[in-house]
Design a protein around this nucleic acid. Structure first.
Lengths: 348, 348
DNA sequence: GTGAAAGCGCTAACAG
DNA sequence: CTGTTAGCGCTTTCAC
């Protein structure tokens, strides 16, 4: 007994296969009576249309690919979850393409990556693609366009691609202005090293926003107050130890470019016997789930919503045929918790 | 210009489409000379076989589904990553089916879940399925079998399904014995509440292992030393506060059923002014990435490897036709770091 | 070794 | 509103 086919349903309902197809696809050109009979037959047989056959015949797969780095990080998992839900609600499957951490000398990872852009993505299994935080080589970008399907990027500008992106400078300014408004003047920053194949210069833009806010407030940016972390708790911890260990120029506030680094900062402060926020204010970026537990003030960027918006955008482009290729700004919001307060001895 | 088809390759190579198919599929019945010509033609045209057409014709999709809960948690993301890599290395795509958190009154989530088991999984888009930590209703399980494809479970026994599972009792015994061997006698446990639709009684089994180890060492289990958390840092923190706040019967060691709860325990101890490990030893389960930072002693269960093993198992079942339906034990290993030490005033 | 031909199960004109 | 008729782009007998 193979699985039921459209033929079986047609026979049972006493109509042609074309009618079954139309009825089940919800086309308007089917009488309600017929549709009901077809539905009943389909249910009775437990019929579900074969995606492969349907795809081949129609040219639509009802499947979307998502290319994503760092599956292990909370942030990207949230984005993925947002994509998944939005797609599933529209009946779409999601095929996951994970891009591994890019160690330059890792041959195997490089091979996997190449195979992704040259083989997997070209199998016509997907109607469209969502690319999250990808910095691509020209060859890879060309490969992406060559698949000839709508493409939506999240988090970085891709040549000729609709992209949802966060205004990193504005976010960093907002975080820094929050600290300034509390009277802080010695504000340190833990950012990220500029890597080659990721982030689209994100660390740089956040640092710029930080400096812009300082300058606008008449505070002179001090390079000694800037450290780089690797966006992990540990990285933030270590950078914060350096910053807070300096006896002379210890900052009264630290703005970290990610919540995980901010949490590392809070832990470092504790280990040094500093109280947060009495002795040190800390603010991060992301809206990480742990932020609540640590009382972390942050600029939330709603990662799950980013995934949802990307999926909705892509589905829209699949619906109408004209791709727009616009840049869409992503929402963000300052979320004040217990890790920030008026500067010691200062006044707001 | 549509994408190149097998026809174009055949024409360019001067052979039939059948030969192109065979040559590219690596069948032995093609002369090396022909194969080389076909390869060259395919490369020249940038030809990649359409997965949908190939699937329809052959009945094999080269795609595997992964059903997974809690995408947001580090642990499951690791499992997924392990699956993905193993599958991709064999040329398989991975279609992700995320099962949302099961709030009993959440109609939308329940609807999504039902649709998954009755529609998405039956579209013949996948050759097989990996089910991670799913506790299913009989109807859902029946639905899974009805798709008529190989099935591999991770983390819980599914009726008539090959399952990779951790010996939770043994793991809990190992963790507890580690503490006992350091001279601890007042050992508390932070476990999980038994939920209805998940975990296969995992919290219960871990608690049993804990009690077995105690009894074997001549220590009488004390229900007052057991608290439930929700497997998060926050949950562990709160449970630990309760445990450590009791002035009379404060434990010298805490065994948490997950690393995240163990980390919460460490943070709670710090907030109470207790030193780890001098005043309190802490051990967890998982092998969480944060364990290193916090110096957490744990029983590692290699989640990424779990995903890889599941994928390899499934691919094996796809290769040979006979499903085995055996239970495969998962590896684990005690990993001693700085959070455990000899009991205060005791001796090992 | 290679080619011809028959589908895989569905959708999409085109008629009526 | 419904049926008939071609395929979608491959894989796979079955011949040669």
């Amino acid at each position: 007994m193979g699985a039921p086919t459209i033929q079986g349903v047609a026979a049972l309902a006493g109509v042609s296969t074309a009618t079954v197809s139309r009825a089940l696809a919800g086309k308007s050109s089917v009488s309600e009576a017929t549709r009901a009979r077809v539905r009943a037959a389909a249910t009775e047989l437990g019929y579900v249309a074969s995606a492969t056959a349907s795809s081949l015949a129609s040219g639509r797969t009802r499947n979307v690919g998502v290319v994503l780095p760092y599956l292990g990080s909370w942030f990207y998992a949230q984005v993925l979850q947002g994509c998944h839900r939005a797609l599933a609600d529209q009946g779409y499957d999601l095929t996951l393409y994970h891009l591994e951490n890019h160690a330059p000398d890792n041959k195997r990872a490089a091979g996997r990556r190449q195979r992704l852009f040259e083989e997997f993505l070209h199998r016509k299994r997907i109607d469209g693609l969502i690319a999250v935080s990808l910095e691509l080589t020209p060859a890879e970008l060309e490969g992406l366009h060559r698949i000839g399907r709508p493409l939506v990027g999240v988090g970085g500008p891709l040549e000729g691609v609709t992209t949802l992106s966060l205004d990193d400078r504005a976010v960093a300014r907002l975080a820094t202005e929050h600290l300034l408004s509390l009277g802080h003047r010695t504000i340190a920053h833990i950012g990220g090293a500029e890597r080659f194949d990721l982030d689209f210069g994100l660390p740089g833009r956040r640092r710029e926003g930080y400096e812009q806010a300082l300058v606008a407030a008449g505070v002179r940016p001090d390079p000694a107050l800037v450290r780089v972390g690797d966006f992990t708790i540990q990285g933030g911890y270590e950078a914060a130890l350096q910053l807070l260990g300096a006896p002379r120029s210890r900052p009264t506030a630290i703005f970290a470019a990610s919540d995980e680094m901010a949490i590392g900062t809070i832990l470092a402060a504790r280990d040094l016997g500093l109280r947060v926020p009495e002795d040190l204010s800390v603010v991060g970026i992301d809206g990480h789930e742990l932020g609540d537990f640590f009382g972390l003030t942050t600029v939330d960027q709603f990662p799950q919503k980013q995934g949802r918006l990307a999926a909705e955008r892509l589905l829209a482009e699949l619906g109408q045929d004209g791709a727009s290729h616009v840049a869409v700004p992503l929402p963000y919001e300052l979320r004040v918790r217990r890790s920030t307060a008026v500067a010691p001895g200062g006044s707001a």
